[in-house]
Design a protein around this nucleic acid. Structure first.
Lengths: 344, 344
DNA sequence: AACAAGAACGTATTCGTATGCGTGTTGTCC
DNA sequence: GGACAACACGCATACGAATACGTTCTTGTT
């Protein structure tokens, strides 16, 4: 049995004071059924009084479980600025909340892909698994992801959910969201709907949104016109340039579905500059409902992704993987937020 | 000596392969001078080949050092949304970078103050120290901070740097920044400069900015008019209301120094609505240089805080405290960004 | 009454690394 | 040539909690 309760109390100190052995303290505090209620309550009282807290390192070492997950951001852009995508920041909030609710610690890093994540986080037992948040060209990362799988690293990523994905994926139902946008615009009497955003495999989420739009157009008996799809990555300038390009092409259109709010805002500026009015001449629908979307002129109709649900699902999926429960990819429905920019 | 190199290699496996003892491996990998160069290189080669990585838990347990710091956000507002202050998000980026450079892990949490931080993070040896980022009424937190000091918790906070602060503090030179704003406006020929922002002890950073302005006015032989100071917390509506109040008061003024960009943007809107032109009638200077400050109409003159330096200094100060080196409060100079809103 | 089963613990050991202390070997200087 | 220091390691153990495996009482069963 331990002796004098020194500076930082250990489970031995508690054991001594409670007149039991150290393992009993450990069991009691973890709520094991094999400790009598009376003993447990006595131990808990002493622990509370001493302000005892389990040593995380000792606990993790013995149990081989850190109850910590690592959140890794990877973006290709970001020259050297700490200009983080606002969408992921909101996601960050939602993930921290989910973790806190489950008693998990959260490590974060914005390190580039060059590093050996599995070594740094999982092999060193810092974290039990990884959540990957990225944006941009996914094909660049496939090699890396394959490596992670090879090392039996637990991870979940946010992105476009497809059957052939490497690793577990959670993402918005981008196709469904594209449909919502299309249906709404058609209901508003629009027929010539342009899409501003990359539509190739390098940006699968954007491509999915475009596909949803095309599906709905086809079902409504409207042919999707490839001339109305203009590439744009998710920045205002890109949106502005894309809209200018669309205007310059001379193609007729009465609506724009932008793959992100930033693109939409850029397009809005280009249209206004060109003398087109929104929503009278052209309806616009954005994507993300980012702060500021409601403050444009006119306020932007957009699609809101369920970030709270996303964080929850990411953590839940990762946990399932860590605990060897069956894991499946999951999508989360998006919600249409109707504002002035799409309604005459 | 250890035996068969099993799944996850340990220092024993390496020791066995290198024909040395485990402690020698430990020392070699930590770069101890008491291991010969030849031996160290041999060990390093084997470690690399086995993809060995030191077990963080075992290491931290033995050395009583986690090489991890915890970043805690606390805001009073935030209904339940994950609406994080953009300024702190930028700070987050800068802090993660500093930590990465020093090989530190970063834990983050948005938990409210109710929790026992010192217990959760330091007493459990999750982290060696805490960085506190907050906004709003500091007086609310003093009790808590005193508690942290009482528990000998290592922490640094971001905020107004004053001699009587509880705990180590790092912050912008708000007084100096206020002076910069004042000097600039006076140089532009302005004489009646209003200040929009709280100026009481509950928002010491704002109060400091106001004081810098007042100092410079006094030195220029201009009496600071208390009627030109209107309270406002850091939101657009607050800024708008404050400006409306100022207009309604009938007080003459030819410039506004807003305690934050959000306040400035709100004020800008109020002025425009009231038919005043910026910068011809009224010059405006904001604070923070937040993304979007350059996109207002006219673009906003503002003060930019050195976030990169801030993250660096926060981490450095915390580390000094952890390692028992002398710690002193530090301020960081702000930089004036001149744009159209303040120049005729 | 004898025995099985379970409750409620204790004992010994384990997780993987870091560190205090001791030891053999070499070199060197007078 | 002997003494002493520096070097390069090994040995034993500590860090603090979790866990495999017994052991001791109860209690119930037939």
């Amino acid at each position: 049995m331990g002796r004098k309760p020194s500076s930082k109390p250990t489970s031995f100190d508690i054991a001594y004071l409670a007149g039991v052995s150290q393992p009993t303290v450990s069991r009691a505090l973890r709520g094991s059924r094999s400790v009598s209620l009376a003993t447990r309550e006595r131990i808990e009282a002493i622990a509370r009084e001493l302000n005892y807290s389990v040593d995380k390192n000792a606990s993790s070492l013995r149990s081989q479980r850190s109850n910590t997950i690592a959140l890794l951001f990877f973006e290709e852009q970001t020259p050297d600025e700490s200009k983080i995508n606002p969408f992921f920041l909101a996601m960050l909030g939602s993930i921290t909340r989910s973790c806190a609710n489950r008693g998990l610690d959260l490590l974060i890093s914005f390190q580039k892909m060059e590093d050996d994540w599995h070594v740094r986080y999982q092999d060193s037992h810092r974290a039990d698994g990884l959540i990957l948040l990225g944006y941009g060209d996914y094909t660049l990362y496939e090699k890396r992801l394959t490596e992670l799988v090879g090392h039996e690293t637990h991870f979940v990523r946010w992105g476009s959910v497809r059957a052939d994905n490497i690793g577990a994926t959670v993402g918005s139902d981008n196709v469904g969201a594209g449909r919502l946008a299309g249906e709404h615009l058609i209901a508003q009497g629009r027929r010539r709907i342009a899409f501003l955003g990359q539509a190739d495999d390098h940006y699968p989420e954007f491509a999915d949104r475009y596909r949803g739009l095309c599906d709905v157009l086809t079902e409504a008996g409207i042919a999707a016109d490839p001339a109305l799809q203009i590439n744009a990555i998710s920045y205002e300038d890109a949106g502005q340039r894309a809209a200018e390009q669309l205007l310059a092409s001379g193609a007729a259109f009465d609506a724009i579905f932008a793959a992100s709010d930033l693109i939409a805002i850029g397009a809005l500026r280009a249209l206004t500059t060109a003398g087109r009015t929104v929503p009278d001449d052209i309806a616009i629908v954005g994507f993300d409902d980012q702060p500021g979307a409601s403050m444009t002129n006119p306020p932007l109709t957009t699609l809101s992704q369920d970030l709270k649900g996303a964080g929850e699902l990411l953590v839940e999926t990762l946990l399932a993987q860590i605990e060897d429960r069956p894991v499946s990819n999951r999508t989360i429905p998006a919600r249409l937020i109707v504002r002035k920019s799409s309604c005459r």
